[in-house]
């Protein structure tokens, strides 16, 4: 088990040597992730782990990828997507152009879910989905739009629960154990690396989704990132967070009004 001071040492190394800043991540969680890697990669001591991270750039890549959590699924929390269909998209229909930002999109399942919603609301043709993540590896997966076939049944159930009425399997072609989502969806997506800790806002959006990313940050960093989102949202635009995340602790909360009971807020000031 890694000691608290050792966590600090390692995080400082990552920042000093490589410019990756994890120092404001939620400590308890990042500590667990480091412990997990220590065990998985069988380091005999902390010193060996630290030396490897400091000197081996290939290993660093693995380390950073495994430090972050990439779990995701399509139509995760169907009631959230149902609210997007019912409350958010109708408010955007009049716009000549719709910009959506998925911050921390992981392997892209959420982005494809959103593209399907836009398609079904007949808005996809005038939408652009910007999808960013810190980790270039997951973006590579997202860009291809190729996923394992096995979870599609679950996703299809989620899709129906979210209010979907089309044939979900019509959105992809299956081959062996994989499915590839239709070009029609991918064409509207732009993938790029973006680090929420160190990179700035790059556009103004009508909807920002950042789900299950802020839970990995401490309160100070959460507030900074939420301010970044605030700067990237026009008046009456929307912000969607993960099902256990909240604006309650942030300085920007006064400017936002929660939409229904889902984790969706609208900028009203």
């Amino acid at each position: 088990m890694i000691e608290e001071e050792e966590v600090t040492l390692l995080l400082n190394d990552l920042l000093e040597v490589y410019g990756y800043d994890f120092t404001q991540y939620a400590r308890a969680s990042i500590k667990r992730r480091i412990n997990r890697l220590w065990t998985l990669d069988k380091f005999p001591s902390f010193a060996e782990l630290r030396y490897r991270v400091r000197t081996d750039a290939d290993y660093l890549k693995r380390f950073v990828e495994e430090l972050t959590v990439n779990v995701t699924e399509m139509f995760r929390d169907p009631s959230f997507y149902r609210a997007l269909r019912k409350e958010v998209l109708p408010a955007l229909t009049a716009k000549p152009f719709i910009r959506v930002w998925h911050a921390g999109c992981s392997t892209g399942e959420e982005v494809f879910s959103m593209a399907i919603l836009l398609k079904e609301a007949n808005l996809l043709h005038k939408s652009l989905l910007y999808a960013t993540d810190l980790n270039p590896e997951v973006l590579e997966v997202a860009r291809k739009g190729i996923y394992a076939l096995a979870p599609m049944r679950q996703y299809s159930e989620n899709y129906v629960l979210s209010g979907g009425t089309a044939d979900f399997s019509g959105y992809y072609t299956a081959q062996y154990d994989y499915v590839k989502f239709n070009e029609e969806l991918t064409r509207k997506m732009v993938f790029s690396t973006h680090n929420l800790v160190s990179d700035r806002s790059f556009n103004e959006f009508d909807l920002i989704l950042c789900r299950n990313v802020l839970i990995y940050f401490d309160k100070t960093l959460q507030d900074r990132v939420l301010t970044l989102f605030d700067e990237s949202l026009g008046l009456l635009s929307f912000l969607g967070l993960g099902s256990k995340e909240t604006l309650r602790f942030s300085g920007i909360r006064q400017k936002y009004k929660q939409v229904g009971s889902e984790k969706i807020w609208r900028k009203i000031d």
């Binding site: 939620a26 400590r27 308890a28 969680s29 667990r32 992730r33 959590v69 779990v71 299950n212 839970i215 990995y216 401490d218 309160k219 099902s243 256990k244």
Partner: peptide
């Protein structure tokens, strides 16, 4: 503890959540 998240305790007297494996 909410369903589908690990519940962690932080040194500053707050909870944090984690949706890892």
């Amino acid at each position: 503890a909410p369903a589908d998240y690990h519940l962690l305790i932080e040194h500053d007297g707050t909870f944090s959540l984690d949706d890892s494996e």
